[in-house]
Design a binder for these strands. Structure first.
Lengths: 224, 224
DNA sequence: TCAAAAGTGTTTAGAGTACACCCATGG
DNA sequence: CCATGGGTGTACTCTAAACACTTTTGA
């Protein structure tokens, strides 16, 4: 790779919730630059490949599972961000339910779910990309049904509430939260089933509804 | 430009409000492909240029004026979107007050402000990019002080209200709107001046405040 | 004097909050 | 029986919508 040649990569900010903490999928780099550092998973876009397809391919290679949500995040192209040459990176944000992770034989690198806080030092400008992804996810919880992307196909309202509490770092009143989310048209659809074995009254099960935006929104307390 | 080589461009969605209508800056292409079609202004990223800098440079070349707001929109890289080869386009969104436009000698092309609706057929996938920009601007009016980006340095609350009404295509109650926006901390700062010559009671003048998000938000009526 | 735009007051309805209270399960 | 989480009821507060009304200019 020489100067005046531009390489395009896709990098993934892959988030999930494990044991009541937000985790991000990171890869320990086996080769320079940043050998031994943690980095976001990603790779080069193939010559005749769509950006979204490239990101989906990387997602499948690295995590091997279907995301609950998948969107383009932003593009990073500051000269010098990669010491090997001019690299433009299109970052994607994906949210997944906590599944047993079949992180299989990818590019000779160990992939792990790590808690986002405090989080290790990251290679390249990946700390900034991760921060942008976290902010995007946090903001979108308010006015989109993004929280269900962290949940399995069927889930309880308590699980949804836990997503909000973990991502926002706040406590929410269970009673009022219940009324609020069940009052948003198209957000949650009752399946008729009930949860079991949680050491309390069984909760009704829901699946994600067709809504793409929440009205009314689930608003966060914003520090003034 | 051959296959397997990727070119990176920046394109601009430049919006302003003229005579109570939302306008976008378009360029009539003088050369193939899409000769004679309207297109978003843009150009290639220089070998050692940051993406944001490239967009700012294009903005200055095409419009020659300072935007009230400027942000990256999204990146488009579907193979075949440009018949000349593989082109990745990083789109930027910029909002400007209605200034006398010194669209000077740019790339042998005529630049014009055109109403966004109905709007002409656009080259490449620029219709989609424009639509994405409009949606972004429309959504961000709710929870950011973006509306002031369409206004001159000093403006009245009536002007701000007109921005909301035009972008959203709705009517807003002047009395309630006044109370709402003046009640958002950091949104508007009174300059002490007064407007004149509008055929009514002079309005107090304001400038944009330091807030980056509006709390409480200026919420739109969302059709259910 | 009239029209037009700015801004304030007031009433009323709806949404959000706090929290008491009952329900259904596991241990 | 008790602990735990699910869910409803209810009173209170706060915001927002609707609209009457006053203010201040240009014509």
């Amino acid at each position: 790779m020489t100067l005046n040649t531009v390489a395009v990569t896709v990098d993934l900010v892959l988030l999930t919730i494990r044991s009541s903490e937000l985790h991000v999928l990171l890869i320990r780099r086996a080769i320079p630059p940043f050998e031994g550092h943690w980095a976001l998973p990603g790779g080069f876009v193939l010559p005749d490949e769509d950006l979204d397809d490239a990101a989906a391919r990387e997602l499948h290679e690295e995590a091997g599972l279907r995301p609950g949500h998948f969107e383009q995040l932003a593009t990073y192209g500051t000269p010098g961000r990669d010491p090997r040459g001019r690299v433009i990176t299109v970052a994607y944000l994906a949210l997944l339910p906590d599944q047993p992770v079949p992180v299989a034989g990818s590019d000779a690198a160990a992939a792990s779910w790590l808690p986002v806080t405090p989080g290790p030092a990251l290679a390249f400008d990946h700390a900034r990309i991760l921060a942008d992804g976290l902010e995007r996810a946090s903001a979108k919880l308010e006015y989109t049904p993004l929280a269900t992307a962290f949940c399995p196909p069927e889930f309880t309202i308590g699980q949804v509430r836990e997503v909000y509490e973990i991502v926002w770092g706040t406590r929410l009143d269970p009673a009022n939260f219940h009324r609020k989310v069940t009052g948003v048209p198209g957000f949650l659809i009752p399946t008729g089933g009930r949860s079991a074995g949680t050491g309390g009254r069984p909760a009704a099960l829901y699946r994600a509804g067709p809504a793409t935006r929440l009205h009314p929104a689930i608003l966060r307390e914003h520090a003034a």
